[in-house]
């Protein structure tokens, strides 16, 4: 008998009494820009509200005046990135400016599906990350976020703030392996 068969047989043999699958309630909550901003700040990120009609390119230039290598499909990029881009090129990206699909008010997370990433590694390998988000696409909780996303696709990530660690004496350090900073540009 293969391990697959023997494991499944053991599971069946030891199956507990049936227990119902509960429906997951939507607990409501505030789907506000204020909550989203509060929590993103709390976890080390930053929210910038774009003024009406302010070009995204200007905002990015103001935020990252030193950035030479910018990858993006939203503004003119200096580094073209697609799924075939070699690692060495990805590794040199200073800033990636990508589209976030939706934001979660209760924790500052932003849903970034594969289609928005240019390359799957880009949001993590880039030194800095800016996510552009429509303020109308903020939901209250993770329940509502998963309900809105429906299917998480081939690959997708909720990104909540910059990469961080507290593995040395519980001292919080921003910029572990992924992006050293995260800005959400709300429009």
């Amino acid at each position: 008998m293969s391990s697959r068969e023997s494991i499944l047989a053991a599971v069946r043999r030891n199956r507990p009494e049936p227990a119902p699958l509960p429906p997951v309630a939507d607990f409501g909550g505030a789907a506000t820009v204020e909550q989203f901003t509060h929590w993103l700040h709390f976890i080390g990120g930053q929210v910038i509200r774009l003024a009406a009609g302010q070009p995204l390119t200007d905002a990015v230039r103001q935020l990252y005046p030193e950035a030479v290598r910018v990858a993006s499909d939203l503004i003119p990029a200096t580094v073209p990135v697609d799924q075939h881009t070699p690692t060495a090129v990805l590794e040199a990206v200073d800033v990636a400016v990508l589209r976030g699909e939706l934001g979660v008010a209760e924790n500052g997370a932003v849903w970034v599906p594969e289609a928005n990433m240019l390359h799957r590694a880009l949001p993590m390998i880039s030194q800095h990350l800016a996510l552009v988000l429509d303020h109308r696409s903020i939901v209250a909780t993770m329940h509502q976020a998963y309900a809105a996303v429906q299917h998480t696709g081939n690959y997708g990530v909720f990104i909540a703030g910059p990469s961080k660690t507290a593995d040395i004496e519980q001292s919080l350090v921003i910029g572990a392996h992924g992006a050293r900073s995260l800005v959400v540009l709300l429009r």
Partner: peptide, 18 residues
């Protein structure tokens, strides 16, 4: 776990890249 509202990365892997 840590009192964070959510982990920084919650990543969903379903299909390998091409």
């Amino acid at each position: 776990a840590t009192g964070q509202p959510v982990t920084t990365y919650t990543s969903h892997f379903a299909r390998p890249a091409a």
